[in-house]
């Protein structure tokens, strides 16, 4: 059951990419982005309401911890732009490459308050397979 839910989460992410991409194609990338965030904001307010939980705000936290929403805007803009040109599956594979390399860099240098985990050279093997896979997806 847990495995099924996990795969279902992935399915939802691809469906979301298609929905957001369709909206951006029709209304423009920035208008779509604003609407997507408005609908998302209402949805999370409903979730908070259903869980009867109050919004917590901690002033002592560094301001950059609240900045992920700003980065999220770029995620949506980038995804919609790539969807228009490349569809869903190829940007997914390329995004996975970006995720892998970024995780490795954050871990290696211990950025963003993470515990440093030194880079293991064998990870080049995995990255190479990802790159070859992407090339196969694009060319064939």
């Amino acid at each position: 059951m847990n495995n099924l839910i996990s795969a279902f989460i992935g399915a939802l992410i691809s469906i979301m990419t298609m929905l957001n991409g369709t909206l951006a194609n029709k209304l423009g990338n920035y208008t779509a982005n604003t609407l997507i965030h408005t609908v998302g904001l209402f949805s999370i307010i409903i979730v908070l309401f259903m869980r009867k939980s109050k919004v917590k705000f901690d002033k002592s936290l560094p301001i950059y911890l609240y900045s992920a929403g700003v980065i999220g805007v770029f995620t949506v803009l980038f995804t919609n732009l790539s969807f228009a040109v490349l569809g869903v599956s190829i940007p997914l594979a390329l995004g996975l490459l970006g995720q892998s390399v970024t995780s490795i860099v954050i871990d290696h240098f211990g950025l963003l308050d993470m515990q440093p985990i030194k880079f293991e050279k064998r990870k080049f093997i995995g990255l190479t397979f990802i790159v070859i896979g992407i090339c196969v997806m694009i060319i064939f």
Partner: peptide, 10 residues
């Protein structure tokens, strides 16, 4: 597309 992955992890 690659930058999307970077932004997701950040």
């Amino acid at each position: 597309s690659v930058m999307t992955g970077v932004s997701i992890v950040l």
